Every structure is written in structure tokens, then in C-alpha cells.
Computed example of a mutant assay.
Amino acid sequence: MLKGNNLLTQNEFQTSFNSLKEAGYIFTPHDTFDQIKKKHRDIRVAIDIPENFPENGISFGPFPVPILYYESYKNLIEQNKAEATVLLAFKKIQYERTGNTSSEFKLQTNMELHESKDFSSVINLISNFELKKPHLSTNYVWYYPGDNIAKICKRRKSKFNYLCWDAFTNLNKEFNIIQSQKNTHIHIPNHYLDKWSNYLPGDTYEIIFELYNRPFKNGNHLSYQNETECIKKINDGLKIPEKRSKNPDRELLIFELFSINQIKYPIQAEDYFHLFKKIGILEQKGSRIHLPNQFKEPSVFFKTIPADWKKKSDNISKTGSILFSYINPDELI
């Protein structure tokens, strides 16, 4: 949760947590962030390596597969085809070695794959996962350990058998995961998180997350080929929070600031595209759209940020409502 002037209310934080769970970017058995216990490592992030496991270890915990990839092979699982388990074993290794689930990686071995004891052990591990009833989300499918693994770990049964997630098995170094072309990584600049969290509409975080879910090379995200590709990505971000409830007070407050500065409040993907270009979140060079690491300060972008607006913004961060900004304490009984 952001602190200081950028404090999110508990409700806003929980809303963001819920939307990221629904999209599949995070996977946890818990309904609130406060319930997560790090000692069980009971949270996984789809775009990051699981924490605190040895470099040559494979955990008993869950792993994600992009939803489109899942659609391409799910029939093999339903038909109990061995090929599906082999594919998922590779995806398990790939995720825990790279924090990446794209198809841009390949397995490199120093022997024939069928001779690899390490790979066979991962296949045996995967065969004890819930392969036919994974957890489905908007963008990812998460495979989690079955009850057999709970017995192996001598842990009591729990939702998604999360009490087993901190267990792992050591592997030899018979194979490596290597990049076939390019690295994909999500790095959202702290400049956005630290400076802009109180000044943009509630949909923005999910849109930023989608925009920065790009191949990452030489310290920079690869650019978008054109406006159409970029706007489509923004639209994907807008679809994520369809079921979530927004804080109406906060949205009205943002709308007020935009109106004061005669800036169009964004609603559609094209609106966000033009807004982000003005802020510097997006930068257009010719037909290509780039993702710079630095962009304007809110105090530079907005010509006017009235003191009373700032006061209401601070109140909504602390209380979740701007009601008290309009009430004189002497009026309260």
C-alpha cells in the first residue's frame, strides 16, 4: 500500500487487489492481501519468479499459463495425452527460472530430453497437479498442486493446497532455459506509482500494467508498431475491471481536476492514448509508440491544482470519502 501523500484507502487497495486476481496477474487462496502469510509463500505473481527458492530448485507451488496457450492444448489434457504433461512441465520450469510465461523461450539440454532425470521428476510432479480443473482467470490459467502433493509434503489439505507451496525439490543442472529471441518483463516506472496515483482515473493502473507488459531489451520496453496496436492494448486494460466497483467520490474528484484544467476526462481507449501522450507515458516517434521511463510531473502537466482540491484529495486518501471536506467540524453534533 502506498504511504504518505500517495496513501490508498483500504477500499481502493482491496479493489486493485481483486481486479489483479480476476485478471490472473496474482494467484492466492486468500480474499484479502492482509491474509497472506509469507512463510507459506502463498502468493504467486504471473510475471515474476517465486521468491526465496534455490536456483536449482523447483517448487511444489502453482504456475501460470497464458489463457491463449491453454486454449491451444486443453483438449490434450482432457484426452489424457502425455504430450500435455510434457508441455506443462516445461512451462513450470520456464516460469520458475525466468518469471516469464511467453513462448519466446526454449529448453536447452546437455542430453536427450527423455534421458533427463530432472525433466522426468518435473513431469512426475506435474502429474500430481490439478490438470483438469485449473483456476481460470481473464488472462492466465493457474495450475495448482493436488491432494497427493499434500500427502507427500505431510501437510493438511488447504485451498489450492497452498500449505505445500513452500516445498521444493532440488534438480541437477541438466538443462537451462534460454531466450529464443527477446525477454519479456513488466517494469512500471516508480515515477507513475509515486507521483501520479492520486491524479488519474481508477482504470489507469490496469491500463499501465497492460501497456508495460512488453518485451524488454537493453533496459527498455520494445515499442508498439503503431497507434492501432497501442490502443488495442489500452482497450485490453479497460476490460479488466469491468466487474469492479469504483470509488465515485474519487472519480468525481479526478473529473473536477480535469475540468478545472480544461483537459478531457478519459473514457475510451483513444482518450487514454491521447492523454498518455500529453503526459509522456507514451511517446510517438514516426508511426511507433514508445514507453519512456520518465514523464512529466503532475505539477507540470496540470496548470492549476487548487489548494482546496488537494485538501479533498488528501481526505479521500485517508477516509475514502470527500464528504468531510465539505463539513465544518462545528456543524457536527
Rank of each mutant, 00 (worst) to 15 (best):
S180G: 06
W196E: 09
D147S: 13
L200H: 13
E210Q: 12
P134I: 00
N213L: 07
W196C: 10
F258Q: 02
T9R: 02
V122T: 06
K296Q: 09
L252P: 05
L282K: 01
E174Y: 04
G99N: 00
Y212T: 10
A150Q: 09
N293W: 15
R244V: 02
N52Q: 10
N218W: 07
F90K: 01
L193R: 08
K21C: 11
L171C: 05
Y70V: 03
I279P: 03
K243T: 06
N80V: 01
N261A: 11
E22R: 12
Q181Y: 08
I47T: 12
Q94M: 14
L8H: 07
I240G: 10
T304Y: 15
P306F: 03
D236R: 07
S313I: 08
Y140F: 14
P50Q: 04
K239A: 03
G4M: 13
K310N: 14
R41C: 07
L107H: 10
K21D: 06
H30K: 13
T304F: 12
S59Q: 01
L76V: 07
S325T: 12
L76E: 04
S158I: 11
K217E: 10
K91R: 08
I126M: 06
N100K: 03
H191E: 10
D166Q: 09
E242G: 05
P201C: 08
Q294K: 13
E112K: 14
F209D: 02
